[in-house]
């Protein structure tokens, strides 16, 4: 599982009209943990870098569509 994805479990009240989505997620990209980028970080190959949008794996944040997987995980 993508370690940039955070999971939380919203409160589910007894009177919700729709089946509850028990698990919600959000992304915390790596930029949140880098105050000032250090020198000499490992690099992608130029081909990879063009595709990913960054030269540095430490800054890469993957994102997969969440449609259809909503509520996929169950707490109980």
């Amino acid at each position: 599982m993508n370690d940039q994805v955070r999971v939380w479990y919203p409160f589910i009240g007894p009177n919700n009209p729709c089946p509850p989505i028990r698990v919600k997620t959000y992304v915390v990209p790596p930029n949140q943990y880098i105050q000032f980028q250090p020198l000499d970080l490992p690099q992608f190959t130029p081909q990879e870098a063009l595709r990913y949008g960054t030269l540095w794996p430490a800054l890469f944040s993957p994102y997969e569509p969440t449609r259809g997987s909503e509520g996929g995980e169950s707490t109980s």
């Binding site: 370690d3 955070r6 999971v7 939380w8 915390v28 949140q32 943990y33």
Partner: peptide, 10 residues
């Protein structure tokens, strides 16, 4: 609050 949000509760 941002730090709380960043924390990996998982």
């Amino acid at each position: 609050a941002v730090e709380i949000i960043k924390a990996d509760w998982n």
